[in-house]
Amino acid sequence: MLTQSQAWKVLEAVPDPEIPVISVTELGIVREVELRNGGLHVVVTPTYSGCPATEVIAQSIRDALVDAGAGAVTVETRLAPAWTTDWITDTAKEKLRAYGIAPPGGDAPVGPQPVRFVPRKLACPRCGSTDTVRLSQFGSTACKALYRCQSCLEPFEYFKPI
Rank of each mutant, 00 (worst) to 15 (best):
T3E: 06
Q4G: 11
K9T: 15
V10S: 07
L11I: 14
L11S: 07
L11H: 08
L11T: 13
E12A: 12
E12W: 03
A13F: 06
D16H: 03
I19C: 01
V21W: 03
S23A: 05
E26M: 01
L27P: 05
L27F: 04
G28I: 06
G28N: 09
I29G: 00
I29N: 00
R31P: 07
R31L: 07
E32C: 01
E32G: 02
V33Y: 00
V33N: 00
E34D: 15
L35V: 14
L35R: 14
L35M: 10
R36E: 15
N37E: 15
G39Y: 07
G39D: 06
H41G: 12
V43H: 02
T45R: 01
T47F: 03
C51A: 04
P52F: 02
P52Q: 09
A53G: 02
A53I: 00
T54I: 04
T54H: 02
E55H: 14
E55C: 06
E55D: 15
V56R: 09
I57F: 00
I57E: 02
I61Q: 01
D63P: 01
D63K: 15
A64F: 07
A64E: 06
V66F: 03
A68Y: 06
A70N: 00
A70V: 07
A70W: 03
G71H: 12
V73P: 03
V73L: 09
T74K: 04
T74F: 05
V75N: 06
R78P: 03
L79S: 05
L79T: 12
A80Q: 11
A80S: 12
D86V: 01
T89S: 15
A92M: 09
E94K: 13
L96A: 07
L96W: 05
A98P: 09
A98R: 13
A98W: 04
Y99K: 07
G100P: 03
G100E: 03
P104Q: 09
P104A: 04
G106K: 10
G106M: 08
D107H: 15
A108T: 14
V110Q: 08
V110M: 04
P112E: 10
Q113H: 11
Q113E: 06
F117C: 08
P119T: 03
P119E: 06
R120G: 08
L122M: 10
P125S: 05
P125E: 07
R126M: 11
R126D: 08
C127F: 11
S129Y: 04
T130Y: 01
D131G: 09
D131F: 05
D131W: 12
T132H: 11
V133K: 15
S136E: 07
S136V: 02
Q137S: 15
G139V: 00
G139H: 13
S140E: 15
C143W: 00
C143D: 15
K144G: 10
A145G: 12
A145M: 10
L146Y: 11
Y147L: 04
C149H: 10
Q150H: 12
S151P: 11
L153G: 09
F156H: 09
E157K: 05
Y158C: 08
Y158N: 13
F159E: 10
F159K: 00
P161N: 13
P161A: 10
P161F: 08
I162C: 14
I162V: 14
